Simulated scan of single mutants.
Amino acid sequence: MSYSALAPIPGFVSVYKDAVNKYFTDIFTKLPHNTQRAYVSDFNEFAIFCEQENLEGFNDSMPNNEDCIKRYVEVLCQSPLAYRTIKRRLSALSKFLGIAQLPNPIVHSVYLKDFVKLSLAQNEKYQLSSHQAVPLTLDILEKINNNVIPDTLLEMRDLALINLMFDGLLRADEVVRIRLEHINKRNNALLVITSKSDQAGKGSYRYISNSTIAMIDEYINEANFNKTKEHEREMDDPRRINKGILFRRVSNRGHALLPYDESKAGKSSPILEYSSIYRIWKRIGNLADIKENITPHSGRVGGAVSLAENGATLPEMQLAGGWNSPEMPGHYGQQAAVGKGGMSKLSKNYGR
């Protein structure tokens, strides 16, 4: 890893190369692999923002850096990103400013600190009041699979992705890094090599159903067939899936993958961003006429709730979702048990 990971922001490389390189060489490479990945991902998201807004990025001017971060916070708070994710991204930027020895308004500007605090508080209230994701339980998933009959590559990809997220109780940042070689069809096993609960980077195995495998096969077969020429794509065709990232970007018309280049980063990266996963869930929800507010986290929560509803033990739930402790699966188990509790029985007995 080197400062080149931050290349999309002009000033980062040309002016502050030495300070950034020194940190990467002496410290960054010794951090846990997932921590390194998270920092680079957050830096690149900021780089994309600067490019889209025609901003230079950080320099040695406090007013410039303050304005840049303020505008970034405004965009983040309008996005579907979680409160904790926004806080983490700002923390990563603050870390970089310290590494590059640049004026840091996140720490030293009273104006910016208050602006960020109020913006995040409003964002959290907004999400809690009207955008709580509901669990994608098995009955909702079956409704999706019955109602959505995919006739484009885009819909095949989206449907396979949602089913895989349910099976493996996957987070958005896990599903975007699934590679074709991570799927073991014989054992119905999926290797998840990135997880925020897996700081050692060892990876964990999750279950993948036969129906989801069939959906993935259909998606791959459709991607590898050139409809224009009416034959299968050549093995070296950059739009073909032979290996590597499974869920890739699709052309505007939804009938072909965009050319794949694993070496690229930023907007040309084959890895989907969270916003893309969010749109996939919304798009499929609309196609299936799902009234509930399902989001990328619905699959993980819904998978856990469905397991609890069908009698899975805490260790079984913990293994299925790759949790290090039984705390979260226990929470989802309580959620599933509400419908079987005393008040539920009382209401049923009296026809309420």
Rank of each mutant, 00 (worst) to 15 (best):
P63R: 10
P63M: 12
N65I: 02
N65Q: 05
E66T: 06
K70L: 11
R71F: 05
R71Q: 10
R71G: 07
Y72N: 04
V73G: 01
V73C: 01
E74S: 08
E74G: 01
L76F: 13
C77Q: 03
C77Y: 01
Q78T: 04
P80W: 06
P80K: 03
P80I: 00
L81I: 03
A82E: 13
A82Q: 13
Y83G: 00
T85P: 12
I86M: 01
K87F: 02
R88C: 09
R88L: 11
R89V: 02
S91F: 09
A92S: 15
A92V: 08
L93T: 02
S94F: 00
K95M: 13
L97P: 05
Q101H: 13
Q101F: 10
L102Q: 07
L102K: 06
I106R: 00
I106A: 01
V107H: 12
V107G: 08
H108L: 04
S109V: 00
S109P: 01
V110P: 07
V110Q: 13
Y111L: 02
Y111M: 05
K117P: 02
L118N: 10
L118T: 10
L120C: 12
L120S: 11
A121R: 14
N123I: 00
E124M: 11
K125R: 11
K125E: 06
Y126G: 07
Q127D: 09
L128F: 09
S129D: 15
S130A: 14
H131V: 00
A133W: 03
A133N: 08
P135H: 05
P135S: 07
L136A: 05
L136P: 07
L136N: 05
L136F: 05
T137G: 06
L138R: 14
I140P: 03
E142G: 13
K143D: 15
K143G: 10
K143H: 14
I144W: 09
I144Y: 10
N145C: 06
N146A: 14
N146I: 10
I149R: 08
D151H: 13
D151F: 07
T152L: 07
L153H: 02
L153P: 02
M156F: 06
R157Y: 09
D158V: 07
L159S: 06
A160E: 04
A160T: 07
L161C: 04
L161H: 00
N163E: 15
L164E: 08
L164F: 09
M165W: 07
M165L: 11
F166R: 01
D167F: 01
G168M: 01
G168F: 03
L169V: 05
L169E: 03
L169M: 13
R171W: 04
R171F: 02
R171N: 04
D173F: 00
V175G: 04
V175D: 04
V175S: 04
V175L: 07
V176E: 10
V176N: 10
V176M: 12
I178S: 11
R179K: 15
L180S: 08
L180C: 09
L180W: 08
E181H: 12
H182K: 06
I183F: 13
I183P: 14
I183G: 15
N184G: 09
K185V: 13
K185D: 09
K185M: 11
R186W: 13
R186G: 12
N187C: 13
N187I: 12
N188K: 08
